[in-house]
Each structure stands twice: as structure tokens, then as C-alpha cells.
Write a protein that binds this DNA or RNA. Structure first.
Lengths: 339, 339
DNA sequence: ATCCCATTTGTTAGCGCTCACTTCGCGACT
DNA sequence: AGTCGCGAAGTGAGCGCTAACAAATGGGAT
């Protein structure tokens, strides 16, 4: 018969016994409690790695009521934007000593987001980040469990919860203004799908820039963020080549589709039509031509959202909700030219 | 004084009291235990949502020793490949009723991966998926905590742990063979960074195809997966234009960089040089020209890895480790032409 | 020497749940 | 009637940890 000592993982009591102290002292060592004699500490430490002991954070969470885990609800983390945001969130959380539990939704609607939040709450997360780019999803934040710290990313909707986002309106304004300054009479827009807050913000900024300059607001085409939808829009636009000289596309992927459609139709960019994208994905710089675009600092958004969330958690609720805005950045490349 | 009843979240005992049963009966209802009278069940259910009760999974995990949480260790989840794989993992895990806790590493080395695994183990995950594309990272799997179910994704290295991956060698062979069949004398290769298992597999497949056809193996350039590194390689290749007629690039992003460099240098694709990429990112279809490439089904890899992991977990260890391979798929588009 | 107080360590209870067991009630069968 | 058996419910212990308090120890001030 082999000793059953190492059959199951060692617990604090095992360490205590080996070190000749009480389990509480072991706990104190593990939690860096000041009042432990150095000699005792090293004895405990030695016992810990002699046994290969790892503390059980589940048991700890049960008594402290803090799991040091944050929940993240997101949508299609395959896309560059959400993926980068979640990455930023995860890095910032880990730097602050928190774990991240992720739920990524296939379809994003109020019920789905609610379910996800519910699971996360059961699991005992200390706070939740909802990457809620759609209006319908953002509404789910209204029925958050009472007292659950939370922050919305790209999903501000006048609710009772803090939000962090890139200033979409400003970004779009930057894009449209650039085109106008280049001497274009007006600027067309390929927007993102309806119901997306980002799409709405970009439309608003685009409109504002045109209105401010006293220019006519041309028709608007709507895509779904995919290169294919941009391609389709590009084909339509190419058909009315003479009229269109400048296009602001709501994201870089659609801009790529547009570029492809224009290439096929023999429309020269930027000679005949100038294009500005949005996002600045790593590929944009190497499109043909390299894409002028608006950079969103997704990493910063992720980090800021964790800042806000942790402040809420660590101050024990009661904080007023805040709204943080990260500025977009204009990136000039080769897809735009003077008229 | 307000009643302190709703001061802190209700627990099972509160539900039991309200429903006039014991806490154990509430537990039975929650766990779908068969021996509960229908009438009792509904009474408990009513009490549950009257109080807005949610069970505390932390307490449950403490006693069952199962958290129904899986750990994922990954590297740069900003990239399309890892992001898609993690997405597939998360979906499959959730469908099976598991949560996913993610740690994404900035730099990937043995120590980093080990730390991550350690944290996850403390946190009480039931199993771990390591997306370990680098040789050094994969080695960390050798010192996994005893008895911890685990699976490596894209990180097979002869170890004692199960692995799931796309058949890189076969994919590369497909790419090179296609080019050879088109009548090219030989095929150049822009590889991924050294130490990456995928890069090695692709080199191996490329070499194998050339060798099998009795062709000379030309020099090889090395990139770092980024479009920029592909761009640099493209400039080099363009300088020796006459010699090079076919290039197999280790991923689509670098292929984009190559395309850009060739465009700048006036090298026509596919007329002068044919290019095959690897991955089939969503953008590839809209490159100019659309990229012929090898598709990796990242979602399938994620799902399969969860299958393997759950089988290990639910059978209570003792399973032999397995090695699953997902076939790559050749995608013909416009960047290749007959010589 | 005496007392006091700060430092270090030990003891006990209990977080919210599930598991193993016990108890209860009721119909079926001798 | 008696009792066996089974479904439905309850009881108590304990998972591994931390919080709160209690106890022991050892200087300095008196």
C-alpha cells in the first residue's frame, strides 16, 4: 500500500503540520501579513514548496466574497476590434491581480447578454465588463444584478452604468473633414449595420462635418462590417463613378472590399475616388493603396474600462457612474488625394 | 430601520425557509434530482424567483471539487488565428456547460506559461487548454500539475499531453504542389519565425513537396507573421525578379505585405510571380489579386480540443493522450497562374 | 521586580453548498 | 394486521479557507 498522503493535493493544514505551526500562520504567510517572524515565514515557505502546495482560491473566495475574477461579455471576438479590446482588458486585469472569465456571444441581444451576466454573477465575479456595441445589447445593462459593479465598452446608452468608448463622432468628423479639406464637394458614407452604436456615431460625425461645411448629404449605403459588404457597396458606387469622388467607409475591412471592387471596375484610388476607413487594423497600411484611416486605440479602451471597474469594486459601490472617452487618431496614408 | 433581509444576497436557506422545505430539497431542485415531488419543486421555484436567488457556484465548487471552469492560456489573442481558436474553444466549452477563464500572454516562454498554468490551477479550473504555438511554450506542458487534464493546441511536442492541430505539413505540401503543378520550376518560401511549431511544419511540408518533385530548394526568407515583415521580404524578392516565379508565404498577413511590395516595385501578380498564402483570413478574398491560400479551420480546432479535454475530465484521468489533426483546405483564388 | 503593551501565534467559528445518511409516510404484499 | 420497500424529505458534517478573537511571549518603562 502506498501512503495515501499524496493522493490528493495538500491543504493548508498539511503545510502547517509540516512547518510546525497553525494553519492560520500559513494563511498569514500566504497573505503577506506583517506580523510573522521572518524565521517562521521561511519555515512555512519551505514546507510549502516541499509539499508543492497551492492555495485553493475557491475556498478563499467563499469566505472573502471576492473571487478576484472579472467577467467579460463580448460579441464575436474574432473581429479585430473586440479581440483587441478584450486583450487590453485581460492584460489590465491581470496586472491588477484579477482573472478574466469570458463569455462571447454568437448573437447579441438583450436576453443573451442577460443570460451571460447571470452566469457570471452565479460564478461569483467581482465585476463585469460588457462589450456592448449594439443598442439592444446595451439595454441589458439596465437589469444588472443589484450592486454588481459593471462597465460598458462602446455601449453608452444613457443608463446607470459607467461607459468607456472611443469618440466615434469625432473620428468620423475627422475623416469627413479631411476629405472636404482636400477639395471634395461632398463625402459619401458606407455605414455599419443599423443598431450598432458605433455605426450610429460614425454617421452622426459624418453628417455633422458635412452640415458644418454647408455641403449636401449624399445617399448612404449600409454594410455589415464585412469586406464582402464593402465589395458590394463598391460595385454600386463604381456604377455612378462620375458623381462620387470621396467615400468615408465605416471600417477598414469594408474599405478593403471597396478597394477590391474599384480595382475590378477600373476605378483608380485615390486619383478618381478618395477613401478613408476606420479602425486602423494592422493590414490597412499594406492595402493598395495604403489606407488613410482613423485609428482606434482598443488597448487603451480595454485598460481604461478596467480602471473604471476596479475603482468601483475597490471603493465598495456607491461611486457615480462615469463616461470616459478615448480620442481617435487620424492616420494619413495613400488612399486620399486632393480633388 | 429597513429590514436587513435583502441587505445581502439570499442563500439556499432563505429559499428553503420561504418554501417551507429544507435547504437540501432546494439543492435537489436546483440539481434536477429526480426524487422531488412536482408540487414541491414548483413551490421551491416560486420561492427562488420571488427572492431573486442565484446559487453560489463558488460554494458548490468547494465541495464538489469541480468548478466547471476551463482555463485557456494563449498568446496574442489579437491575431486572427489565436482569436478564432479561442472563440471556438469558448463556444464549445459553454455549450458543454463550462466557463472559460483566459490568460493571454504578452511574451510566450516556458516560465510565463508555467505561471499562467499555476494561477489557473489555484483558481480551481477543471482542465486547461494551452494554445502553445511555440516550441518553448509547448515544453511548459511537461511540468503541468499532477492530474490536471490538459490539451495543447498547435503545440504538439512528443509530450505526455493530448494535442489538436491543423496539419501544417500537409497544408504546406498542398500549397507548394499547387505551384509546382502550375509549371513553376521551384517555389520560394517566406517562413514564420523560428521556434514556432507552425512555421516549422510549413517549412517541412514545403521542402517535402519540392523534394518529392525533385526540385531544387531555393533560399528561404524568414518573417515574423506581420504584414511588415512580408513587405520587407517582398522587396528583397522583387530585386531578384527574374529568378523567382512562385512564392509560398507562411501566412496571409505576410502575403499582403508581399503583394504591397510587389505592387510598389511593379511586379505583377500572378503574371510574373504567383503567391500562395496560409490561414485564409477574412480579408484574403479581397486582396488584389484575391489570395490563393490554405484555409485552417480554427473553429474546428477549438471545438475538437474541448472534446478531447472534456473526455479527459469526465472520465477521471487515466485516458491515453491522443493527437488529433484537422485537415487544411486548399482555396484557389487569383494570386496564382500557370508559368 | 512589576506592569503594560506590542508582537507573534493559536483557537474557534462559519462562508454556502453537497454528500451520506437517516427518517418519514404510504401503498403492496404476505 | 404486520412488514417490506421505495419515494420524498430532513439532518449533520465538512469542503479549505479567513476573520475575529484569545493567548502566549518578550522587551521597555516604572
Amino acid at each position: 500500500m502506498r501512503p495515501n498522503v499524496d493522493r490528493r493535493p495538500p491543504v493548508m493544514a498539511d503545510v502547517a503540520r509540516l512547518a510546525g505551526v497553525s494553519h492560520q500562520t500559513v494563511s498569514r504567510v500566504l497573505n503577506d501579513h506583517p506580523n510573522v517572524r521572518a524565521e517562521t515565514r521561511t519555515r512555512v515557505m519551505r514546507a510549502i514548496d516541499q509539499l508543492g502546495y497551492r492555495r485553493n482560491l475557491v475556498a478563499r473566495a467563499l469566505v472573502t466574497k471576492h473571487s478576484r475574477t472579472l467577467g467579460v461579455v463580448s460579441f464575436d471576438t474574432t473581429l479585430y476590434g473586440p479581440a483587441s479590446t478584450v486583450y487590453g482588458i485581460e492584460q489590465a486585469a491581470r496586472d491588477a491581480g484579477y482573472f478574466v472569465s469570458i463569455v462571447s456571444l454568437r448573437t447579441i441581444d438583450r436576453a443573451g447578454v442577460n443570460d451571460a451576466i447571470g452566469y457570471l454573477a452565479e460564478q461569483g465575479v467581482d465585476g463585469i465588463v460588457v462589450v456592448a456595441p449594439q443598442r439592444s445589447a446595451a439595454r441589458a445593462l439596465d437589469d444588472l444584478p443589484a450592486g454588481m459593479p459593471a462597465v460598458a465598452v462602446e455601449g453608452w446608452h444613457q443608463g446607470e452604468v459607467s461607459a468607456v468608448s472611443v469618440d466615434q463622432v469625432e473620428g468620423a468628423r475627422l475623416a469627413a473633414s479631411h476629405l472636404l479639406e482636400l477639395g471634395h464637394e461632398t463625402v459619401w458614407h458606407i455605414s455599419g449595420p443599423a443598431d450598432w452604436l458605433e455605426a450610429e456615431g460614425r454617421i452622426e460625425g459624418w453628417r455633422a462635418a458635412l452640415t458644418a461645411a454647408g455641403r449636401p448629404i449624399p445617399g448612404m449605403l449600409t454594410g455589415d462590417w464585412s469586406p464582402r459588404s464593402g465589395y458590394r457597396a463598391g460595385k454600386e458606387l463604381a456604377a455612378m463613378a462620375g458623381d462620387v469622388t470621396a467615400v468615408f467607409v465605416a471600417n477598414d475591412q469594408m474599405a478593403l472590399g471597396l478597394l477590391r471592387a474599384f480595382t475590378e471596375e477600373g476605378v483608380k484610388v485615390p486619383e478618381q475616388i478618395s477613401i478613408v476607413g476606420f479602425d486602423d487594423i494592422p493590414e490597412s497600411e499594406f492595402f493598395s493603396p495604403p489606407l488613410t484611416t482613423i485609428r482606434q486605440d482598443f488597448g487603451a479602451v480595454g485598460r481604461r474600462s478596467i480602471d473604471v471597474l476596479l475603482r468601483q469594486i475597490e471603493s465598495g459601490e456607491g461611486l457615480p457612474h462615469e463616461r470616459l472617452v478615448v480620442p481617435p487618431q487620424f492616420v494619413l496614408r495613400g488612399s486620399t488625394a486632393a480633388r
